[in-house]
Amino acid sequence: MAGEEVPTRVRLLEAAVAVMAEGGWSAVTSRAVAERARANNALVHYYFGSVDALRRAAVTHAVEMELEGPVTAILQAEDALDGVSAAIRALVDRGTGTAGQRVMAEALLHGLRDPELRADSAQQIRMFRELLAARLTENRDAGLLRADADPAGLAVLLAALMDGLLLHVLLDGGTDAAGAADGLLGLLRPTTAPQDRGDDDDDPPRP
């Protein structure tokens, strides 16, 4: 029985994500999720305790699955700015309106009304910002980021940029999110100062 516990719980989570993506927050009921997962209705309460707890767990599951690849791209890239660009492209390349993306948008709205969901989401955001800030600090010290950049503040802006671009893509599939991001990220890179030519400009041209 212990071997069935994990897949059953995951099946319920994936079913809840699918139901929420199709019908919204209130569409997630124990009956709808159990039917989608082909599981006993009682298992929803056994694993999650309540429908609200299931909804919050489904949001966390969707966010983790949706952002796993992009976050890995950022943390493993030698240049964190290249990683952010790759992460945004990965989100866009998955297509607009994936189940995970719709659930993330749904969570933004309901997080304002649900203190527990808001706390869970805030924790995920803070963890991502801290990881990104650490990578940006490494890049600044290595000369890959402008010397006057504030890694902690920049991490907040880049995290918000990714969330905002995702919402724009969901509303307008023609949004060039990747191109817009690359233009902004380019401004954060250090500029190469022209080489000091000394008094060469005063020298007469050679014959």
Rank of each mutant, 00 (worst) to 15 (best):
A87M: 01
V169L: 15
P194I: 01
A149D: 07
V6W: 13
G100I: 00
D52N: 15
E64Y: 08
R102N: 07
A80C: 05
P70N: 06
A34P: 03
A62L: 05
H168F: 12
A178N: 08
L131G: 15
D200W: 10
R113V: 02
L166F: 01
M104E: 00
T72Y: 04
V169P: 05
A73P: 07
V84H: 02
G186T: 06
L187S: 13
A32V: 07
E106K: 02
R11H: 14
M127L: 13
V19H: 09
A16E: 12
D203T: 13
A159Y: 11
D196V: 10
E14V: 05
L145A: 04
A152R: 14
D203H: 12
G198A: 13
G164P: 08
A159C: 13
L161M: 14
R36V: 04
W25D: 09
R38A: 12
L109A: 15
A181P: 10
L109I: 09
Y47W: 12
E116N: 10
E22N: 06
L171V: 12
L165D: 08
L144H: 10
V92S: 10
R94F: 00
E22I: 04
L131M: 14
T29R: 09
G198Y: 01
A107S: 12
A32G: 07
A142S: 14
L91A: 07
V51A: 14
T8E: 14
L161I: 04
V19E: 10
R102T: 04
V44H: 02
D79M: 02
L157M: 12
E78P: 02
L157W: 01
M104N: 00
G153D: 13
G143M: 09
L166I: 01
A90E: 09
V33Y: 03
G23D: 14
L167E: 00
L109S: 15
T72R: 15
D202Q: 11
A147W: 07
G3V: 15
A21D: 03
M1I: 03
T137R: 10
P204I: 07
G95C: 05
A53H: 08
A149R: 08
G143Q: 11
G186Q: 11
E138C: 06
S50D: 11
E78A: 13
T192W: 00
D203K: 12
D82P: 02
L157H: 06
G153M: 04
H45F: 09
I88W: 02
D120E: 13
D199P: 10
L75S: 07
A142V: 08
L81E: 03
P207T: 08
G143N: 11
V44P: 01
D141S: 07
Y47Q: 05
L167T: 00
G24P: 10
D82G: 02
L109G: 09
E106H: 06
L167S: 01
R197E: 14
V71N: 11
A134C: 03
V84D: 08
Y47F: 15
L112R: 15
T8A: 09
V71F: 04
A180Q: 15
A58P: 01
R126Y: 02
T8W: 05
L108T: 02
L187F: 09
G111N: 10
A142E: 14
D150F: 03
A159I: 05
